[in-house]
Design a protein around this nucleic acid. Sequence first.
DNA 1: CTGAAAGCGCTTACAG
DNA 2: CTGAAAGCGCTTACAG
Lengths: 351, 351
Amino acid sequence: MSASPKGHMNPTIHAVARAAGVSSGTVSNALNHPARLAPGTLKRVHHAILDLGYIRSAAGRTLIRNRSDSLGLVMPDLVNVLFVEIARGAQRSATEQGKRLVTANSGFNAHELAAGTTQLDQQDEYLEYFAEARTDGVLVASMRDPSRGIERIRNHVRPIVVINYDVPRADWCTVLMDNEQVGRAAIEHIADLGIRRAYFVSIPDIVQPIVERRRGVRAAAAARGVVLTEIGTAGLFPEDGAAALSGILPEPGGERIAILGANDRLAIGALQLLRARPDLRVPEDVAVLGMDGDHRDDGADWITLTSIVLPGQAMGAEAIRLIDAEAQPGHEHERAVLPVSVRPGASTIGG
Amino acid sequence: MSASPKGHMNPTIHAVARAAGVSSGTVSNALNHPARLAPGTLKRVHHAILDLGYIRSAAGRTLIRNRSDSLGLVMPDLVNVLFVEIARGAQRSATEQGKRLVTANSGFNAHELAAGTTQLDQQDEYLEYFAEARTDGVLVASMRDPSRGIERIRNHVRPIVVINYDVPRADWCTVLMDNEQVGRAAIEHIADLGIRRAYFVSIPDIVQPIVERRRGVRAAAAARGVVLTEIGTAGLFPEDGAAALSGILPEPGGERIAILGANDRLAIGALQLLRARPDLRVPEDVAVLGMDGDHRDDGADWITLTSIVLPGQAMGAEAIRLIDAEAQPGHEHERAVLPVSVRPGASTIGG
DNA sequence: CTGAAAGCGCTTACAG
DNA sequence: CTGAAAGCGCTTACAG
């Protein structure tokens, strides 16, 4: 049981073979096909393995098998809760299927992008890393087009699933949430409440989800006869929302309006302004809604924020399922679009 | 430039050599010691690499170099924001130093542990995974004793740094935050405000940070003459805090008290109760404080929560630094304990 | 400056 | 049931 009785570091399969008085092929069989060994031999080998603190080298094994029994997940930065949820869903699902999942963070940060301070992210580097490792499959959760990086590794890693970015006619499976539905659901929700005038508060169209939410908002507003005004912000934080909105709050007794934040933080910026305006009632005068369920309502809020719940964990789990499906012969690439739902709060429905 | 002109998959170094009309050793040199090649040869090799979509196999390379040029990080579940911050700090720091960092989630969940519904986590499995991969160093962020898993891989991976768990006389470097200071700082803060009676609300001592925070709270309360009452909860959520505290709220006009949540969510449970009690003023009658800076105060709160800011990103960065330091000859294991600080909010200081 | 050869630690038919 | 041997894809002295 002692880790290393002979002081040897890095014991190999040959050291184990010597200690057990067998050949290295037999040690390998003990690990890979134990049923082939006589019980006594198996026991001796296992004893030697424990005694030497032997751990098989993945390099030798991967080299000859040309597979590594593990999956890779490339993530943007973890500031966005959506990606934490995607990672959790994927990890759980992989574990349930007995697969190892290993994650790399590319350092992409939408806040920085919006503020114009982005450095390059490491997405392509980590894709290459997983390709070098001959990972059995790669999941890429992304805020930007991953095509170039994927193109490079195509010859070396087969099942690839892209999460959260939609490339037309892509040569891989894709898992998306329905961002147009996010925008539509927001408008539907306030239209159902009888509100006829809405402000959509958002950064410019620099990332795909924003583009699509805007499209959904516009389409639904047109369909429902909601008068829509779009307000641009410099960033995705509450103060950006507050700064952009300070001019548009109505006088008391005016027409009822809704403020729709492209994300929850922007909506919270609106709530901050409104807290300082006791003459305006929420939601009777101004209804407020966020669009990415990022804000964790744990009961400390002065008013709970209505938002759209994004299916992060489900997206992660779906991606693992598709990795599997891709491995089936004759599989056609799938494009899964997962639905979202409104989580009503007092900021629109009161109570 | 086409990915695979001859339809070959998994091109090897030999395929590249053939295409470039050189030997495989020369291709290897082009990758590892480009200066050794004649410019024309180098160019031909690079062209062949691009043309074939060649990506070097880490397996062959690791096998002969016995190192993989990457670091592994084993994390508990990402529900706890502290660990997200640790991961971000480690990732950023590794990137700055040009190192690849790859992460695995063990699925340990303190909430589930507190609720008694834990399954086993995968910490040891992923430690073994990184050992098999001959990772150049391993970081383990943990809520439980990782000794067994580390002991097993000791012969195969050298620099090991444990984050957030303190093993006495450990044979590795350790990065901690000062959890006793967390408890002390909480008491100091409210004692400085003149409060003489405090309630410490916490799950039982099933994880190390709780043990130490309790110890710090007790020591500081004794030192400062604060009358301390400890309240047990069944879990770490706001509703657990609210359930445990509903009996202890004072009548208006009584002695001023402080409620100290072992984490922010428990403190928020107290805030929920207090919002329903307009006869009690916060912080004049009841001051409330959380202990893990987990709650993101983004301005939607009815009152901002005073809390203790934990040095998550700094811990991650420090761990990367120690991996480096361990590699120096003659290095002695370090035990870094990073300080915490109070983030004052209206829930204790008003305003 | 380039090539031939050895060897890293495994797994897998194949003999025996 | 076990062992000897080939080979996975690389890198690195070493000749030339």
